[in-house]
Amino acid sequence: MAVERLPTTYGLAESDPEQVLIDRRGVAPEDLAQIERIMAEMGRMRQVERKIMRSSQRYMQLNETDMRALRQLIAAKNAGRVTTPSDLRAYLGISSASVTKMIDRLEANGHVRRSQHPTDRRSQCIEVTEQTHLAAREQMGRHHAKRFDVANSLTPEEREVVIRFLAQTTDALEWSLEKSSPQES
């Protein structure tokens, strides 16, 4: 019987042969194979997401932080919220100087425009231009729509299993990250 090749190079036997990280004793071979498939498919999805991101960045000639800022500006626009440079700074976790440079660069390239804040005369608001909004929708939105189609094809019960799996995986990764990061004083 031929061994099915996983969609990525991930494999427990190769990545943790001595079972230092994951004790696999007592896990049935068929369960182990299925778990490896899940991990491999998650890895494959991350690879495709990175390809999509790099393609969009090249198309729009932007870096990752710029793309994150534009996604936030588009979401705010769609929700009817005003976005200030301070909002972007907090969302992106970067300095005020970095936000100013980024906005200057995005404005110079026609991606955003500044205007007077509607209620605070001392502040500006930043909004994405229509041209960039449309380009982002074409580049990223169509990929997001495919995710929706897949989720929509599942039964409500299947979606609950996927939701629980993703939420618990995210929680476990966050816990792991917190435990491995040096404590800030």
Rank of each mutant, 00 (worst) to 15 (best):
M1R: 05
A2T: 08
V3Q: 06
E4K: 12
E4D: 11
R5H: 11
R5P: 07
P7H: 12
T9Y: 05
T9V: 05
Y10A: 13
G11C: 12
A13P: 03
A13W: 08
E14Q: 15
D16Q: 14
P17Q: 03
P17V: 02
P17T: 03
E18H: 14
Q19K: 04
V20A: 12
V20H: 07
L21Q: 04
I22K: 00
I22M: 12
D23I: 01
R24M: 14
R24G: 13
R25L: 00
R25D: 04
A28R: 02
A28M: 00
L32G: 07
Q34Y: 10
Q34N: 10
Q34W: 09
I35F: 03
I35W: 02
I35T: 08
E36R: 05
I38L: 15
I38F: 12
M39N: 05
M42H: 06
M45R: 12
V48C: 01
E49S: 10
E49H: 09
R50Q: 13
I52G: 02
I52R: 11
R58S: 09
R58V: 05
Y59A: 14
M60T: 06
L62P: 00
E64T: 14
E64H: 04
R68V: 05
A69K: 07
R71I: 09
R71H: 08
Q72V: 14
L73I: 01
I74F: 03
R81T: 09
V82K: 09
V82D: 10
V82L: 07
P85S: 10
P85G: 15
Y91Q: 11
I94F: 06
V99D: 03
K101L: 07
K101E: 07
M102T: 13
I103E: 02
D104N: 15
D104K: 14
R105C: 01
L106P: 04
E107V: 02
R113Y: 11
R113I: 15
R114T: 06
S115C: 03
H117D: 13
H117T: 08
P118S: 09
R121W: 08
Q124W: 01
V128A: 02
E130K: 03
Q131D: 10
Q131S: 08
A135P: 06
A135W: 12
A135Y: 12
R137L: 09
E138P: 00
E138C: 00
Q139S: 14
A145V: 15
K146N: 01
F148M: 03
F148N: 00
T155S: 15
T155H: 11
T155W: 07
E157F: 03
E158N: 12
R159F: 12
E160L: 14
V162R: 05
V162L: 15
I163H: 11
T169W: 08
T169G: 13
T170L: 13
A172R: 10
K179E: 12
K179A: 13
E184W: 06
E184L: 13
E184Q: 14
S185Q: 09
